[in-house]
Design a protein around this nucleic acid. Sequence first.
DNA 1: TATTCCCCGCCAGGGT
Length: 826
Amino acid sequence: MKRCHRLALEEFSQLLARSGKEPFAFQKQTWRAYLQGEDGLVHAPPGTGKTLAALLGPVIDWSSSGAARATQAQSPLQLVWITPLRALATDLERSICQLLADLRIPWRAEKRTGDSTSSQRTRQRARLPEILITTPESLSVMLSWPDWSKHFASLRAIVVDEWHELLGTKRGVQAELAIARLKGIVPSLRLWGLSATIGDLDGAMQTLLVGTPLPKRRRIDAKQSKKIEIHSIIPQQIERFPWAGHLGVRLSREVIPIIERSQTTLVFTNTRSQTELWYQALLAELPALAGQMAVHHGSIDRSLRAWIEENLQSGKLKCCVCTSSLDLGVDFSAVDHVIQVGSPKGVARLLQRAGRSGHAPGQTSHLTFVPTNVLELVELSAVKMGIEKGWLEDRCPLEKPLDVLAQHLVTVALGGGFEPAALLAEVRRTAAYQQLSDEEWKWVLDFCQHGGSSLAAYPDYHRLVWDGLRYTVSSSRIARRHRLSIGTIVADAMIAVRYRKGGQLGMVEESFVGKMKPGDRFMLAGKILELVKVHDNTAWVKKSRGTTTTVPQWMGGRLPLSSQMSHALRSLFHDARDGTLASAEMEALAPIFEVQREWSMIPGARQFLVERLQNRDGYHLFFYPFDGRLLHEGLAVLFAYRMSRLEPISFSMAMNDYGFVLVSPTPPPLEKAIESGLLEAGPLTVDVLNSLSTSQMCRRQFREVARIAGLLFEGYPGARQPSRHLQASSNLFYDVFEKYDPENLLLLQAQREVLQSQLEIQRMRQVLERLSTSQMVILDLPRATPLAFGLLVDKMRDRVSSEKLADRIRRMQQPLQRAAEKIEGG
DNA sequence: TATTCCCCGCCAGGGT
């Protein structure tokens, strides 16, 4: 380290110590590594001082070199700080300004995000601040300025905050491309990532720092491990607790004492409608919470959410029921307890949520788990096992998504244009596009210039123009539309919900409002509302004094069970088979395990249990791989396909995280299918493509790809296209490509994304390999077992009215209940 | 009586 650096480091350490902020060891390590010219990844739990760690290297470097002060001719920009959340940008702006003031550094730190004011924008367009805090999307927008390179020429370092959140997403790839662009004009640019705990941290670092030579890469781990205490609410009479379902409101009473004795509580649920139901349930239990409790999820209006976040931060709210929308973001130091309703479905997710309480160095996080059905207690045990053994989910980097590249080419063309060979070299310096072939590059370039082979007649798709030296954009219409569409998040169009007088409450789906008539009531944002009319893409409502049980439901992904959780689940069932119940949750389940053992069996880790059962609904085959519902969906269709190839037979099916059921009107040829390769992994891709209605899935996925690549324009602000229009035009492109341009790489990409991300073909292969080397146990049973129960309920939901369903569920549960009670009694 | 369906982002020049 240079002498001037050493002196400056000493001086700042003392300054911090004097103001009561004795630096942590990992912070000092980060500063030293920075000053020695290294790039790196800082891994630290939330609330342990990552911001200061990443900030001080560039600050010391600048303050100890007199020359740096002279390079401010065009722009004083020193540091770009990339964050995935606008709310975080706001928070960082405040805390970094405070730190700079404490350290007496004459820098400005300013955010630039989609919610920046126009005066901020105008000012920044003339001159960027010393520290620019921004999102991957806003950074891309800035790269589309024709004179962007003048603004960024003085840049010295980039910090990528919450890198674990961006890794493995198209937003992350967009950030990689932007970083490569900036490195193109400042080759000496320094790069640091900040990450929470995830599975493959070295892989995470490798992806971000792919351009940094190995000896110059440093990983720094904050040694302060966060203490977490996890408790479960265990239902008094386990056998009378629901055996299926996911809402869990019947335990809301048990949650009240926790809320009462805590300063502030966050209640996490898995779906948006569930937050609304839990809010009402808690309010009914404790009316005094009115005014001190809020609902927070992705369909609540932004301004309302901002208000909630502010009041959480200041400790004015006692409780907030939320979805993943509060998984990360602003530090809420008042939160001292977290409640998780239902299975978190992943180890890292539970850790992240627990970490929202006790959010300061040295404090303990407290989390209480509320199960919604009996088997979720096993899942919580699985999470605890995962935490104990360090089985954390990985984030797999994406490989060359061509839609993101197409968008980037137009952005770069707007930003002063490009010379193809140079840009190709730059793009290949990112982890995502290292393996980009010449053919793929040419195809994307041609796609941006002519719209590919089938759209040559449409000028809107001739976005790039070759001027003999460079590719540029000449049409101002194309330029404007492109800047409006920068980004990789594709959301469904929704209907705004507004009071007749006053503000917007949130958004609901078109189809939900479509089913309602004026006068109908529903709940949103914790309020009971009455629909007045639907007009102008807006549902106008007024407050209602009545009650309702109607909750909007939003389309969204169902949280998939991670493979780490699957592994832990199998291991827990294995132990239960051998009589070991290693946690309070598992012990509570003893009567249920006993019923499963007596009526059928508890499968060990190397066993594959198949239960066969016939009743008036048909022939049932229950398979239990314990690999999560997403994967079971694929396996169910694959098995049905492979059996129906042997003889004509049709199946209906249902699946959950533990297994799946196939039901047929005639006996299924199970044994014959096993002999002829039911579990074979070899011809998997072909069979899956043949068996799944992949074209519907591909169409949906293609809409995302087409939007990102710039084929679909969502409309100008305030005049968004309705989602059915977009799906219609997306389908049109899909049909045209399929017919006239089947080798279209965007089409192939949509298929690949379906296979890899949705069907997890890679994992399916591994699962089949495991199953085929397991001992398959086929049992013929007279009645449904505890494991089968949830699948049967799910199966019936499709056909039966909800009243009859409840009756049938009660009837089905009775024998199980009696058996379990007998076991517990005796 | 019980409903399964996370999250995140995005313009700008010419007119009052």
